[in-house]
Amino acid sequence: MSEPLEPITDTQMPGVLAANIGTPIKLSDLMLDGVTAEAARSGDAVKIWTRLHLTSDDRFFHRIVEGLGAHVEYRAREAGHYISLTRSGFILLVIHPDNTGDLWLDTAAVTLQVLAKRSMVAGTVLFENDIADVTAMSFPLVEIGPHDRVVCIFREGWRFALFFDFNPKGELAIADMERDLGTLHRRLKYRDLYDAIADENVFGRLIDAGWFPFVEILGREFRNLATQCEAGFELEEVEKKLLAAFNAQRIESMFVRWMAKPHFAGKERLLRSALNNFAAGDSIAVIKIVLTEIEGILREAYRRVQGKGAKLKRLLEFAVQSAEAKAGQPDTLLFPAAFGHYLKSYTFADFDPVARTGNAGSRHAVGHGEADADSYTHVRALQALLTLDQLAFYT
């Protein structure tokens, strides 16, 4: 994967294919209106799912897919098409009000709406390392009307996803469908990241070491850290490689991103000094500047929205809420709730002045002069910069 080479912004980047690469199979008599949500005997009332999205990790996935697939393959044979849906990686079925349908097997153009780390022009090659988040999936060249029903099954790696909306009210919510499809893609593609956050042992070790799936290192770099923590190995070698990857060009791209934010721009001289000191290897100066300025930058962001200041607890809540609002949902790759936990547990962690437990990862310990001198490492300096950078994506 390529490292970011240009200034990184929060531009929304749609990746639209120029055309569908085939035509749909025409089907009829598609009697698909719901899926039972529970067991029931003959004559009993039963709950029905008319809209659902889930992955192959869900225990109902295979049962539902097999039933849907059998019906679709049967109707396809009636139409003279002998197909096996298990051979397709992307299945899209659009069912019209008259129960006719268009079945697209690996032939429909697909758009992923992503939050890009860096600014781009049309035609730029996009690497996975350039993606900060995936927010939606759509089919720009497939006609889907408000009265249609939709079934979509797709594969990502070794996992599968299922979405269906049988639209009983005849008011298909296209935007909601695209959002849910984006969620499914994100959960499949980045399942290892979600697993690392969900695993208390792994995430706990990451936080103890000062690490988080920061947007700037999302991808291979963070995966290396998480893998080491999962194995219980020391992080020294991985951290050394990560530090080496933050050359002057990459650091400058972060600075450009910060200066695009009004609540960062007022701190230009201080932040420039921090970056210059990072390049010079002076971790003490970096940490002293960045950790003491984070709260001020958050307060300025809050003031621009609310018209007044707030105490730290409210500022941390505001950061999480801003990220959720920006991404449109709480479980995106920005991991806002998890970052809120990271801020409270690490960046703004309390310390015991009697037991002298403070280290240079804690803004409180640094601000009160209670951080152990040996804890002012270059790794912690990078973590401070990445924490600040994360807030640039959030606010």
Score class of each variant (00 low, 15 high):
283 S>T: 07
283 S>I: 09
283 S>P: 01
284 I>K: 15
284 I>T: 14
284 I>Y: 15
285 A>L: 12
285 A>Y: 13
285 A>H: 12
286 V>G: 06
286 V>K: 09
287 I>E: 05
287 I>C: 05
288 K>N: 15
289 I>C: 10
289 I>S: 04
291 L>G: 01
292 T>A: 08
295 E>L: 00
295 E>R: 01
297 I>C: 00
297 I>A: 03
297 I>G: 05
298 L>V: 00
298 L>G: 01
299 R>C: 01
299 R>I: 00
300 E>H: 11
301 A>T: 09
301 A>M: 02
302 Y>H: 13
302 Y>G: 07
303 R>T: 11
303 R>N: 07
303 R>C: 07
303 R>Y: 06
304 R>V: 03
304 R>T: 03
304 R>G: 12
304 R>E: 12
305 V>P: 04
305 V>F: 07
306 Q>D: 12
306 Q>E: 10
306 Q>F: 14
307 G>C: 05
307 G>R: 03
308 K>S: 14
309 G>L: 03
309 G>K: 02
310 A>N: 03
311 K>Y: 11
311 K>E: 15
312 L>N: 06
313 K>C: 06
313 K>F: 10
315 L>S: 04
315 L>Q: 04
315 L>D: 06
315 L>H: 13
316 L>M: 12
317 E>Y: 00
317 E>K: 13
317 E>A: 14
317 E>W: 07
317 E>G: 06
318 F>K: 05
318 F>E: 01
319 A>V: 07
319 A>W: 07
320 V>R: 05
320 V>S: 08
320 V>H: 00
322 S>T: 06
322 S>P: 02
323 A>N: 08
323 A>P: 08
323 A>C: 09
323 A>M: 07
323 A>Y: 01
323 A>H: 03
323 A>E: 12
324 E>C: 09
325 A>Y: 11
325 A>P: 08
326 K>R: 15
326 K>I: 01
327 A>D: 13
327 A>Y: 05
328 G>K: 00
329 Q>W: 14
329 Q>A: 15
331 D>W: 06
331 D>P: 08
332 T>L: 05
332 T>E: 09
332 T>S: 15
333 L>G: 06
334 L>D: 06
335 F>V: 01
335 F>A: 07
335 F>W: 14
336 P>N: 02
336 P>R: 02
337 A>Y: 02
337 A>E: 14
337 A>Q: 14
337 A>S: 11
338 A>T: 00
338 A>R: 02
339 F>V: 00
340 G>P: 09
340 G>W: 10
342 Y>H: 11
343 L>E: 03
343 L>V: 11
344 K>D: 14
344 K>P: 07
344 K>F: 04
345 S>E: 15
345 S>P: 10
